[in-house]
Amino acid sequence: MASMARSALRSAVTKAKSVASTPKRSFSSQLHDDAHETAKWEKITYVGIVGCTAFAAYCLSKGHHHSPDPPAYPYLHIRNKEFPWGPNGLFEVKHTEHDH
């Protein structure tokens, strides 16, 4: 049983070594295709960047529409009673005459 496991392990290691030691073949047409694809996408990227920049400059140079002030809605900031700390802010320092 142990010898069977050893021989299976040995054959797996031998196969792994032979696969790892085999050099990859590179075909000249494949290298040409990769260079062509890289050049194509580089050009597309530059055109996209220049196009987006030009479009943004055009849109930002036109100015923008200012809408009139919204009407005062009476229900937004209703406070009918004083704050517990008074009309001033909670964290404001109150100066007295003898502090100066």
Rank of each mutant, 00 (worst) to 15 (best):
S11A: 13
S11F: 06
Y46R: 10
P23D: 02
T14Y: 12
E82R: 03
V47C: 00
D69M: 08
S67I: 03
A35N: 12
A16Q: 06
S61C: 15
A16D: 05
T38F: 09
D33L: 15
F83P: 00
A39L: 13
A16M: 05
S61M: 14
E42A: 11
T45L: 05
T53S: 11
H66D: 04
N80P: 01
P71S: 05
A57G: 09
A12G: 01
I44L: 14
K40V: 08
K43A: 12
M4N: 06
A16T: 06
K15W: 09
S29I: 06
W41N: 07
S67L: 05
F55T: 09
G89F: 10
T45P: 01
Y58M: 05
F91K: 09
V50T: 11
D34W: 03
K40E: 03
H32M: 09
L90D: 08
E97W: 14
R10Q: 13
F27Q: 09
K17W: 12
A2L: 11
V19W: 01
H95M: 10
A16R: 06
A56T: 14
F27V: 06
P70Q: 12
H100V: 04
L76E: 13
S61I: 05
F55H: 07
A8Y: 09
H32D: 01
H77D: 03
D34S: 02
T22A: 14
K40R: 13
S26W: 10
S7F: 04
R6P: 02
E82A: 05
S11I: 08
I44A: 07
P84G: 02
Y58Q: 05
I44F: 14
P87A: 00
E42S: 14
L60G: 08
G86N: 04
Y75N: 12
A16K: 10
A56K: 10
T14C: 06
H32Q: 08
W85E: 03
H98S: 09
S26I: 10
A5Q: 08
G48R: 12
A57N: 13
E37L: 07
H65A: 07
L60F: 14
A5F: 06
Y73E: 07
K17R: 15
P84R: 02
K24S: 08
H65E: 10
S61V: 04
D99K: 03
N80C: 04
P87G: 05
E42V: 07
D69T: 05
F27N: 08
G86D: 05
P87Y: 02
I49A: 03
R10N: 09
N80A: 01
D34T: 04
N88D: 09
E97D: 09
F83M: 08
S3D: 12
S67M: 04
I49L: 15
P84V: 05
A5P: 00
D69L: 11
A54Q: 04
T38Y: 11
F91W: 13
G63N: 15
A8K: 13
P84H: 01
K24A: 06
H32G: 00
C52W: 07
A39H: 12
L31V: 10
S18M: 12
L9F: 06
P70M: 04
Y75I: 00
K17S: 02
